[in-house]
Nucleic acid binder design. Structure first.
Length: 703
DNA sequence: AGTGTGAAGGTTTTT
DNA sequence: CCTTCACACT
């Protein structure tokens, strides 16, 4: 190591971090606790390789699991070195697409393939199985198929292996039928991006060698989230001579439901011989209290490597637990916290996306700006998918799912029966739906055939515009000529929505892509594999986000909401919920907080619109009581006054604790307009009048 | 072919 | 509370 040449950024690292950056030789496993500077180590390591070891940017591959993490890494690397531009930073799936786009032809994959999302796969399987299965069952089959792909099992895999996934004897056959139908469209689903990339590397020695030569440096972030297929892909991809670094934390494995195998990180040293392990156990993010709470919670899990996180940070405030009557109170409380310290960067975390709704509503009503992350992904919106379907069908006329979606949208007099006939006819044209429509006289009567020909004509006509015009202009023509724009403008007026605006946004999103067929393909690929956030006009400091989406992020103040049994931990009827994974998810949430941590729960929650009682999450009891301040702001009913809170609940002399002001005692107590008003003298020397009902005041030692 | 009605049924989490 | 689906009507 050459200390004199070592750049400034190395000086900012601790000993373990520096060792992780400078390590050379065999594979490296970095076990990085929450907040231990993991991303910093990865980005610094890349910058060091570029700036000091003279590595070629194009020889570096960094893989993450979410788009957000990839974006974050790109940004932070760019801040370290100007040579970052050509470094390949992608999600595992996007990397699979990258490989297949270039070399997939060798195993018969269409260069112009698009990626079907879950709903596309669903409609495809539905088309294949007809009315024989209900929607729930189709969903079930699809999830099995996707698990199989996670395991690296294609439809031709050993039947005994496939049977392990399902006792249902029909599964292998249904998997095979789905796959055949999918291949006929020329497109791929998410699982295929990994599975076929793996197959390619196994079958084509040329491509494997080529990629192995190219990627002399491979880094994998969030390695605990990798699944079996991804692990195998990695083994094929990385040359023995290459530098392989994986970073992860078994306590933060939260994607088991989509096939992630914690085993991959536990057995990494066995799979890659000569592995060195470096542990990052110093947390730079959270207060001592927050870290102690999180560590105590995750200690309840049995299947873990075990590690001890330490921090030099101050103890900070206790963890604040608040109980409410219902979700509205919970949301109002969060809003009030935000209003009180509007400059404090805050995140509101929840288990499921739909829980964001009440916060959106309350924040909107109070005029508090917020950033909503994830929720309904842009490209999953109906109007966006419609437009993308037109574009897809143009580039790939075998795209059955796209064709079904738009063949009668806007309505053009083509019904279900006709649609079915057209799809059947497509088979005789090599799957080309547009060709079948042009030749509609073969299976449809005069008028209907004319409509089908018009449909094909519309798309062919649009296609001719593609070559000469910039992509933005072209897509605008598509939404105009297909009359999607009119359709949604009309609906917007009727329903008060803003779908037409989303279409404009889609047009704008195409701006960086130049023109022509190639630009369109690139645009489609990027759109389908990424999730842009709508942060426009966001002027505030509040983020609404699912727990899963927060991985890798940090906030000054974190509010985890909906801590109720059945919600978090979530409860599944079929009973194979994994409580330890839920707990890890909770751990992830807790460790996002830098300084302030608020946990909230409600006594009543809504199930299908009906209020039902719910018990506070067991996780709340797993935090040591001495780290916690508990408060109960919600009696029984959500309507009217709370019984049992009559005047005199705060007699003079009561020792109290306020989250805002600290310890104190009640000096006087009186009742005004039916509300109890107390004067509290705090240890800080301040004396303040407080309405306990509306303030987070609690009795010291209160449970 | 398209549209409107009522009843039934359904919730994780992401690529 | 929402969406989705079957069925009857225009």
């Amino acid at each position: 190591m050459n200390e004199t040449r070592a750049p400034m950024y190395l000086a900012a690292l601790n000993e373990q971090q520096r060792a992780a950056v400078l390590h050379s030789g065999g594979p490296l496993l970095i076990l990085a606790g929450a907040g231990s500077g993991k991303t910093r180590v990865v980005t610094t390591r890349i910058a060091y390789a570029l700036d000091d070891l003279g590595a070629d940017p194009a020889s570096i591959l960094a893989v993450t699991f979410t788009n957000k993490a990839a974006a974050e890494m790109r940004e932070r690397l760019a801040a370290l070195t100007p040579r970052a531009h050509d470094v390949l930073i992608k999600t595992f799936h996007a990397f699979g697409a990258w490989v297949l786009r270039r070399f997939g032809g060798e195993i018969g994959i269409d260069r112009g393939f698009l990626v079907y999302d879950e709903s596309d796969s669903l409609s495809l399987l539905k088309a294949e199985l007809g009315n024989a299965c209900g929607p729930a069952q189709i969903r079930g089959w699809l999830s099995l198929i996707s698990r199989a792909k996670d395991l690296g099992l294609g439809p031709d895999a050993d039947e005994r292996e496939l049977r392990k996934l399902s006792y249902d004897r029909r599964f292998p056959e249904i998997y095979a039928r789905y796959e055949e139908r999918l291949r006929a469209t020329g497109n791929l689903d998410f699982g295929d991006l990994i599975l076929h990339a793996l197959r390619l590397l196994k079958e084509s020695q040329t491509t494997r060698d080529r990629l192995r030569r190219k990627f002399a440096h491979v880094l994998v972030d969030e390695y605990q989230d990798s699944n079996t297929a991804q692990f195998e892909l990695l083994k094929e991809l990385v040359a023995p001579s290459a530098s392989l670094v994986v970073v992860g934390d078994d306590d933060q494995s939260i994607y088991g439901f989509r096939g992630a195998e914690v085993e991959n990180i536990l057995t990494f040293p066995d799979s890659f011989s000569g592995t060195e392990i470096i542990r990052l156990e110093e947390n730079y993010r959270s207060t001592r209290t927050i870290l102690a709470a999180a560590s105590a919670v995750v200690a309840h899990n049995s299947r873990r490597m075990g590690k001890t996180l330490i921090t030099k940070n101050e103890a900070g405030n206790p963890v604040h637990i608040v109980l409410f009557g219902d979700y509205t109170e919970e949301a109002l409380y969060a809003a009030r916290l935000v209003e009180r310290n509007p400059q404090t960067e805050t995140a509101i975390l929840y288990r499921t996306n739909y829980q964001s709704r009440i916060f959106e509503e309350v924040f909107g009503r109070l005029g508090i700006p917020y950033l909503l992350v994830g929720s309904v992904r842009f490209y999953e919106r109906e109007e966006v998918k419609d437009t993308l379907a037109y574009l897809s069908l143009m580039t790939n006329p075998r795209d059955e799912v796209a064709a079904r979606r738009i063949i009668n949208k806007p309505t053009r007099g083509i019904g279900e029966k006709t649609e079915e006939k057209a799809m059947t006819a497509a088979a005789t044209h090599g799957g080309d739906v547009l060709a079948a429509c042009r030749d509609a006289n073969a299976f449809a009567s005069g008028k209907t055939a004319g409509r089908l020909r018009d449909f094909a004509g519309l798309i062919d006509g649009l296609h001719t515009l593609l070559a000469g015009s910039p992509l933005t202009h072209f897509i605008h023509e598509v939404i105009r000529k297909t009359e999607l724009l009119d359709l949604y403008t009309g609906r917007d007026e009727a329903e008060g929505t803003s779908r037409a605006k989303n279409l404009e946004e889609l047009v704008n999103a195409a701006a960086p892509y130049g023109q022509g067929e190639e630009a369109l393909r690139e645009f489609l690929e990027n759109t389908l594999l990424s999730t842009p956030e709508y942060g426009e006009a966001y002027g505030g400091r509040v983020t609404l986000i699912t727990l899963h989406n927060t991985k890798g992020l940090e906030f000054e103040r974190v509010i985890i909401s909906g801590l109720e049994e059945g919600v978090f931990p979530s409860e599944r009827k079929d009973g194979d919920g994994d409580i330890e994974e839920e707990r890890r998810l909770f751990y992830v949430g807790l460790t996002r907080a830098k300084r302030e941590l608020v946990l909230t729960a409600c006594r009543n929650r809504l199930l299908y619109g009906q209020p039902i009682r719910s018990a506070p999450s067991r996780f709340l009891d797993e935090i040591p009581p001495e780290l916690v301040v508990k408060e109960d702001l919600g009696g029984g009913s959500s309507a009217g006054a709370v019984p049992g809170r009559a005047s005199g609940a705060w007699p003079p002399g009561t020792r109290v604790y306020s989250y805002e002001y600290g310890q104190g005692y009640v000096e006087t107590s009186e009742t005004k307009d039916g509300h109890e008003v107390v004067t509290v003298h705090f240890e800080t020397g301040r004396t303040i009048k407080i309405l306990p009902k509306y303030h987070d005041l609690i009795k010291a030692g209160d449970e």
